[in-house]
Simulated scan of single mutants.
Amino acid sequence: MLLSEHKELKLEIKSLPEKEKDKLLLRLIAKDKVLTEHLHFKLLEDEHDLVRRQEELQGLIDEGIEECLHAKRPNSKDTLLKMRKLNGGINHHSKVTKDLNSEMELRIHLLNHIPIDFEESVYSSLYKFNEKLTVYFVKTTVAVLNKYYKMHEDLQFDLKDRLNDLLEKVYRHKTVTIAKTLGLPEQL
């Protein structure tokens, strides 16, 4: 049931006493952890907290990348799982802070530093993960570019060099065929 479809309900909610509205609002907010965290960020935190959150998440990303790079047997399966987990952390950060600039910086950092080139044989059980990793990597890059194009040109200017490094990485590895298929530019 959508509230927009029930105008009478909307009017009745607006006519509730202030105290009752507050109780209902607090009960609803408590059911959604992301909304609770977003409201905490919006109402109780400032720019310094945004920087702190971004630095903490970047530290987690760096740790994850180090784990991928220095594993006993680096492989595409572990890298794909780690990349999805780190991307999920960035998604959460984005939902809580609603800050596109820090989200873009974190995603570009992740994509620029995560390893994507694994020499796994076609006969290896890990080969299918190699393909999944390359597709996931390129699709994530496409999503980042789409968000980049919607940003203000001053913010685009700050990210352009790092995005060009990312595009160079895409066209330097096995991801090139998928990138061409999806129409990814070689440079901005």
Score class of each variant (00 low, 15 high):
residue 39 L to W: 03
residue 39 L to V: 09
residue 39 L to A: 11
residue 40 H to L: 12
residue 42 K to W: 14
residue 43 L to W: 11
residue 43 L to H: 02
residue 44 L to M: 09
residue 46 D to K: 14
residue 46 D to T: 07
residue 46 D to M: 05
residue 47 E to G: 04
residue 49 D to C: 05
residue 51 V to L: 13
residue 51 V to M: 10
residue 52 R to F: 01
residue 53 R to L: 15
residue 54 Q to V: 06
residue 54 Q to N: 08
residue 54 Q to R: 12
residue 54 Q to L: 07
residue 55 E to G: 01
residue 56 E to P: 02
residue 58 Q to I: 08
residue 58 Q to Y: 03
residue 58 Q to R: 15
residue 59 G to C: 03
residue 59 G to Q: 07
residue 60 L to E: 11
residue 60 L to K: 11
residue 60 L to R: 12
residue 61 I to C: 10
residue 61 I to D: 02
residue 63 E to R: 11
residue 63 E to M: 09
residue 63 E to N: 07
residue 64 G to T: 07
residue 65 I to A: 00
residue 65 I to R: 02
residue 66 E to R: 14
residue 67 E to H: 12
residue 68 C to H: 05
residue 69 L to I: 10
residue 71 A to I: 07
residue 72 K to E: 14
residue 73 R to T: 10
residue 73 R to G: 00
residue 75 N to E: 06
residue 75 N to C: 14
residue 76 S to Q: 05
residue 76 S to N: 08
residue 76 S to Y: 02
residue 76 S to I: 04
residue 77 K to G: 02
residue 78 D to L: 05
residue 78 D to S: 07
residue 79 T to C: 10
residue 80 L to T: 01
residue 82 K to V: 06
residue 82 K to G: 00
residue 83 M to L: 10
residue 83 M to E: 08
residue 83 M to P: 00
residue 85 K to Y: 15
residue 86 L to M: 10
residue 86 L to C: 08
residue 87 N to A: 06
residue 87 N to D: 13
residue 88 G to L: 12
residue 90 I to W: 00
residue 90 I to N: 02
residue 91 N to R: 15
residue 92 H to P: 00
residue 92 H to V: 09
residue 93 H to E: 09
residue 93 H to C: 07
residue 95 K to F: 03
residue 96 V to N: 01
residue 96 V to G: 04
residue 96 V to I: 14
residue 97 T to A: 05
residue 98 K to I: 01
residue 98 K to V: 00
residue 98 K to S: 02
residue 99 D to K: 06
residue 99 D to Q: 04
residue 99 D to M: 02
residue 99 D to Y: 04
residue 99 D to R: 04
residue 99 D to H: 10
residue 101 N to F: 10
residue 102 S to F: 07
residue 103 E to Y: 10
residue 103 E to K: 11
residue 104 M to R: 05
residue 106 L to Y: 04
residue 106 L to K: 05
residue 107 R to A: 00
residue 107 R to G: 00
residue 107 R to W: 04
residue 108 I to P: 07
residue 108 I to V: 15
residue 109 H to T: 10
residue 110 L to N: 02
residue 111 L to N: 01
residue 115 P to L: 11
residue 115 P to C: 04
residue 118 F to P: 01
residue 118 F to A: 01
residue 119 E to K: 09
residue 119 E to Q: 12
residue 120 E to T: 10
residue 121 S to F: 11
residue 122 V to K: 15
residue 122 V to A: 06
residue 122 V to R: 15
residue 122 V to I: 09
residue 124 S to D: 14
residue 124 S to C: 09
residue 125 S to Q: 12
residue 126 L to H: 04
residue 126 L to A: 03
residue 127 Y to D: 03
residue 128 K to I: 12
residue 128 K to C: 02
residue 128 K to F: 05
residue 128 K to Y: 08
residue 129 F to Q: 01
residue 130 N to R: 13
residue 130 N to Q: 10
residue 133 L to Y: 05
residue 134 T to V: 13
residue 134 T to L: 15
residue 134 T to M: 13
residue 135 V to D: 15
residue 135 V to N: 13
residue 136 Y to I: 05
residue 137 F to R: 14
residue 137 F to P: 00
residue 138 V to I: 14
residue 139 K to E: 15
residue 139 K to S: 13
residue 139 K to C: 10
residue 140 T to R: 13
residue 141 T to C: 08
residue 143 A to I: 03
residue 144 V to D: 09
residue 147 K to I: 08
residue 147 K to N: 14
residue 147 K to A: 13
residue 147 K to S: 15
residue 149 Y to S: 08
residue 149 Y to D: 07
residue 150 K to G: 02
residue 155 L to A: 13
residue 157 F to I: 09
residue 157 F to E: 14
